[in-house]
Design a binder for these strands. Structure first.
Lengths: 233, 233
DNA sequence: TAGTGGTCTAGACCACAAG
DNA sequence: TTGTGGTCTAGACCACTAC
């Protein structure tokens, strides 16, 4: 683990353990630099990582402050590679509907940049949070990257599996979403009624080298899903 | 303007002028460093800014590549301080319903950290995009920061006015949203029907020194509003 | 193994907030 | 004016990709 990551982690842990209130001032860069025995740039790099996550804000000429904590139960769309890591203190369970290997549909082929006839993994599952339906998810995976997938893996955190077991390096993603009405079939999956609202959410994940390997479509339950984005100018 | 900002701007302009396709490789850090006559760190800082915006991605050991361009008409929630700057090639117009000075409601007082009885500006307006209703917006402004506001200002870009005229330094913001059904009054504002879907969106803006000065509630039209987030691991 | 991005340092200098 | 965050440099060394 890199120096700046370690420092960021330590400071973050210290904050989330409740040693600071929102608005509290942290030690100055100079002080932190001496505490951790590293150069100024390294401290700043660590602090910028925390700022990006929404934990703190850096006020030039003034100091380093703890930011408001996000509302409980809100999904942070910022650092989003799956839910499981995000919602601390809530139980997330996945109910797998199916895992299959099928020829990639036209639309998926384009998004994953695959040739005609290429097979992909399809995964359908329902995600529950604290026993309530959070969303229905349909994902397609490029088999060149996601070498293997089965139901028991899909019941857990796929991204953790990809990183730890398959050594996939997840780089970035594109998120697109819009609000819509549910059709009858979709409604039954979410225990809702036809024409109820939903968030239609699409996310395409790329490796660090820019290969798209996961194209997912999600339907979020309008009463159970809430979102948060820490944004910066 | 800072060196790294200038470089970032130049590279970005070059890309958006269409000199590159998605996936194209940019010159190496070494080459850029010589081209712009700056140190390596400065180039990297510029590139990281572009990466954050979603224009490029940096692949260690491989190179710098142009990222897919976002879908047309999608609002980029990442760098979001108002719409006007975001949606290039689309006409955005604001129809102001009212601008008033009122005692801050309880909820607003908490979010803007104001004392009881403090007056705030309220602004209500409808935002149109290419002639269609995009959203209804109700904003409250801290009068200590937003010293003056009137209808003609609210018809334009408030954030540009705040930065240029009032020298407000916008730092960061918290975004919260959820999907919901419209009630009758809300529906009529958006030219929709009661119980149609909508995106209920709230954003609290802070100055660079952490003072909350704008607390806005928006209702997005479910057929006309689409969103995009370039996300990174 | 060559080339590319990324980390880290030490230190000069700048820009802003707050007293 | 003081202290604090932020930019920028030059250069050593590291980690990864792709051949």
């Amino acid at each position: 683990m890199l120096k700046y990551e370690q420092i960021a982690l330590q400071i973050n842990t210290f904050i989330s353990e409740g040693h600071f209130q929102a608005g509290d001032k942290l030690p100055s860069v100079e002080a932190l630099k001496e505490k951790y025995n590293v150069s100024k740039s390294t401290i700043i790099k660590a602090l910028e990582a925390l700022e990006k996550k929404g934990s703190i804000y850096l006020a030039r000429g003034s100091g380093i402050y703890v930011r408001n904590q996000k509302r409980d139960g809100y999904l942070n769309l910022f650092s989003s590679s799956g839910f499981s890591d995000e919602i601390v203190g809530h139980s997330v369970t996945n109910h797998v509907i199916r895992v299959d290997e099928v020829p990639a549909p036209e639309e998926v082929r384009q998004k994953l940049k695959l040739n005609e006839g290429t097979e992909v993994y399809v995964l359908e599952r329902i995600v529950h949070i604290d026993g309530n339906v959070l969303c229905y998810e349909k994902s397609y995976f490029n088999k060149d990257i996601v070498l293997y997938l089965d139901t028991s893996i899909a019941e857990g955190s796929i991204f953790r599996y990809l990183e730890k077991n398959l050594k996939v390096k997840i780089g970035f993603s594109d998120i697109y979403f819009t609000v819509d009405k549910l059709d009858i079939d979709e409604a039954s999956l979410l225990n809702l009624s036809a024409s109820d609202p939903c968030l239609r959410y699409e996310q395409i994940f790329y490796t660090t080298t820019g290969i798209p390997f996961d194209c997912s479509q999600l339907l979020y339950h309008y009463e159970n899903a809430h979102f948060y984005i820490p944004s910066q100018k």
